[in-house]
């Protein structure tokens, strides 16, 4: 049955792909087996991550990039991540609104994901969703993060090319510059470039980037766009293509791919380990002594944790 699903997805069956994505998102074990068949066929797509503060215009930019890519005849996948409400567990996935005009285009597949409380903000199933789109043969996969706090950083391990989108007049952009996005961006986008403070933002960004050394033979450019009108977005797509070429010719493509594989692998390991450990800790009886030793100060937490880890990891971990 799995091989049938794999065949259908490889053949471009949108419905089958969407259902598999759903099962992966819901962590249905059988779906993981199907993914195995797809994983081997993936690895060709150019994954472009977009990060930036809320309101910077990421979705609108993504929409315009889809348009530009389609003009070039590329097929496109979009994965848009929005935060999950910690209170209800629900989520409003609103990025699609700005890209919905591509809904009826068969060569575009847009998928909204909720972060579902995964640490770091990228949904746990982002990697799987990208794999499915990649296996379907999408040339370009745009990965749009929820764009709050640490997610931005995380996207660096999930994409070949990272776009950092900033827009003037929000005040928090200089904060963002300080907050460490300078290390992860391959391309900086100053959006809403018709704003009166956009020049100022571009200048301070340039200043901040001055000291950074070229990475993988690539000097990070600053591109000005106005996503609402589409100004500058075709040029941006060209620069994204140029980055890919630079990676490929400089042999950095493999390095990035390896890094992405590592991030996905780590994510699964960490999740597995966390789930395993919390499962173990749920068996209260076994740990009651440890807890009471800790509470009564007979043991210290560091030593207790280390010995517990030793014990747990010796047991055959992970289902």
């Amino acid at each position: 049955m799995n091989s049938l699903i794999v065949r259908r997805i490889l053949g471009g069956d949108v419905g089958a792909a969407a259902r598999l994505m759903r099962d992966l998102d819901d962590e249905i074990p059988a779906a993981r087996a199907a993914l195995r068949g797809l994983y081997a066929r993936a690895g060709r797509a150019h994954v472009v991550g977009i990060t930036g503060s809320p309101g910077a215009g990421k979705s609108t930019l993504a929409d315009k990039l889809v348009e530009a890519a389609r003009r070039k005849g590329q097929t496109v996948g979009v994965v848009a991540v929005d935060p999950t409400s910690p209170i209800s567990g629900g989520a409003v996935l609103g990025d699609r609104i700005r890209m919905q005009r591509h809904a009826a285009d068969e060569k575009v597949f847009i998928r909204s994901l909720a972060a579902r409380g995964s640490v770091g903000g990228l949904s746990r199933s982002v990697f799987d969703t990208v794999t499915v789109l990649d296996a379907m043969g999408k040339d370009l996969i745009i990965l749009e993060t929820a764009g709050v706090g640490q997610d931005g950083i995380k996207v660096a391990g999930a994409a070949h090319t990272v776009l950092v989108v900033l827009s003037p007049g929000q005040g928090d952009d200089i904060q963002a510059i300080k907050a460490g996005v300078l290390e992860i961006g391959d391309i900086y986008v100053v959006n809403k470039c018709d704003h009166r403070y956009s020049e100022q933002l571009a200048r301070s960004l340039l200043l901040a980037l001055e000291g950074t050394a070229p990475r993988d033979g690539w000097t990070t450019p600053i591109i000005k766009t106005e996503a609402v009108s589409g100004k500058g977005t075709r040029e941006l797509l060209d620069v994204i293509g140029a980055h890919r070429s630079a990676l490929v010719s400089g042999r950095a493509w493999e390095r990035r791919s390896m890094n992405m594989a590592r991030t996905a692998f780590m994510e699964l390991l960490e999740t597995g380990a966390r789930e395993f450990i919390s499962g173990e800790l749920a068996r209260e009886k076994r740990w009651r002594r440890t807890f009471s030793d800790l509470a009564s100060r007979r043991a210290d937490p560091h030593s207790a944790a280390r010995s517990a880890l030793r014990k747990l990891l010796n047991i055959k971990a992970c289902k």
């Binding site: 409400s85 209800s88 629900g90 989520a91 409003v92 996935l93 609103g94 699609r96 919905q100 809904a103």
Partner: peptide, 12 residues
């Protein structure tokens, strides 16, 4: 629906 714990996509 979000507040009832669902993931809701809005098309506009």
């Amino acid at each position: 629906l979000r507040d009832a714990g669902m993931e809701v996509i809005y098309t506009g």
